[in-house]
Simulated scan of single mutants.
Amino acid sequence: MDDIQSLQHTIQQLRLEIEHLKSEEHRAAILSTDQRYQESQVRFRTVFEASRLGNKIIASDLKILQVNQAMVTLLGFETKEELIGAVILDFAPEERHSDWHFLQEKLWQEMSPSFSFETCLQKKDGSKVWCQITSILFPDNGQTLGYTIIEDITERYNLREQREEFISIASHELKTPITSLQATIQIIHKMVTEGAVVTDSLKKFAGNARRYTTKINHLVEDLLNMTKIEQGQLALNKNIFALSELIDGCCDHIDAGGRHCLRYTGDHSLKVTADQNKIEQVVVNFVNNAAKYAPESYEIVIDVKRTLNCTKVSVIDKGKGIPPSSISKLFERYYRDEGNKEQVAGLGLGLYVSSEIIKRHGGEIGVESQPGIGSTFWFTLPDVNMLS
């Protein structure tokens, strides 16, 4: 009997011990879950704060609940407190408010798991910054909040705008001479098939056809060269040649027009080691620009001279000059002198391509201009021994 009671007592003690162990295990599990949650929160805050992209947490009414320092910097502010509590619409131009209302609809009404779009935000100083917005929903203490990453894409957006404008300009610039060329060829064809003798009119039309063809060729060369430059495939086929071989005849289309007279100065017999075709493109671009932007300059000078360790080629006009504010932009891709409304034309690639060609030759390129006096565009080609 005593043995049975003793066994029962032992069983009861074991049951109590098991219950105690279960309770301790449950408590440990709770502590472990809470610890993991705390560690997760620390990791999230670390990523949130350290991100180089703008991060923010917003409520369904678009109120900003939290931001990181990158978001503060993106909008040109100094402290988080200047943003927290405000509505994101406070930092968006009025015409872009619809973007955020659409986000609001997609996330909180349609319950889309994520949404992405491009929009514009307004910085503290009033300037605008284009952004890529990506938002997701997440639950938090019974609420559904939005976690948003904001990337500054202003540079990418502007480049895309430039490309779209460039395509429009390129289409127009190519269409104009092609249309003129087509009309001229039709007239020449009609005169020839009707048995017309070679008259001054026929010569004039033939000259026009040649000029339009030359313009199309220059435009296409600029387009092809830009593509090769962007792909890093602008190859140079260098050989030794006298600059007179290049300069004599490369700009006959300017002389033939009758509005300008080319004059050559300096030592054109100087020899250089370079890609003759590409250097010719640079000279033609310079001369074309002089004719286009300095129409009042009857004389255009091509000067060649030897300087220390290099040969310098200059194209000089006596036009009205270039505004100082424009000079630093002349060799940028797509840049066109919009201030010169009467003469502005072209793709805005000629000087950019010329600059890249000269850089790949190891030379320098530049411009000097005085308002009311004229402009000098120049480039240098280094001696072969200097390159080696």
Rank of each mutant, 00 (worst) to 15 (best):
R163C: 11
K318T: 01
E221C: 08
V72K: 04
S32W: 03
I84S: 04
L159Y: 07
P323D: 11
N239W: 09
I18R: 05
Q162N: 10
R96T: 09
L74T: 05
A28S: 02
P177M: 10
H268V: 04
G366M: 13
Q281Y: 14
N141W: 13
G76Q: 08
Q13V: 11
I327G: 05
E25H: 08
Q343W: 11
G348N: 02
L107W: 07
T380E: 11
K190S: 00
S201Q: 12
H172Q: 06
Q41D: 09
L246A: 07
K22A: 03
A70C: 11
T73V: 02
G146K: 02
V284K: 06
H260V: 02
F102V: 00
E49A: 04
F286A: 14
E24W: 00
T213A: 06
L7C: 01
G85C: 00
F241R: 12
E95F: 09
L74Q: 06
V283G: 00
N239T: 12
E221A: 10
D255M: 10
Q233H: 13
G126C: 15
L202E: 03
A70K: 05
D152Y: 07
Q13G: 02
D252Q: 08
I365P: 13
I30F: 04
G142W: 12
Y147D: 08
L224K: 13
R163S: 11
T119K: 13
M111V: 07
A70G: 11
Q122F: 12
D61E: 06
T376G: 06
A86C: 13
T214G: 00
H97E: 05
N217D: 12
F286M: 14
L21E: 05
Q132M: 15
L270W: 07
G363M: 11
A59L: 00
V220E: 12
E151S: 08
E155T: 10
E161C: 03
N55Y: 10
A294P: 07
G266I: 15
A50H: 00
V304K: 09
M191N: 01
L62Q: 01
D90G: 06
T214R: 02
Y352D: 15
I169M: 01
L219Y: 15
E95K: 08
L65N: 04
E230K: 15
R210Y: 13
K228A: 15
T184Q: 02
C131H: 14
Y147G: 09
K359R: 08
N217P: 06
M386G: 07
Q35P: 01
S297P: 12
Q109R: 10
L14C: 04
K359Y: 04
L103C: 09
V272I: 12
N239P: 03
A29I: 11
Q35T: 07
T79D: 06
M386V: 11
I149A: 10
A274N: 08
G266L: 14
C310Y: 10
D267K: 14
L145R: 08
Q8C: 06
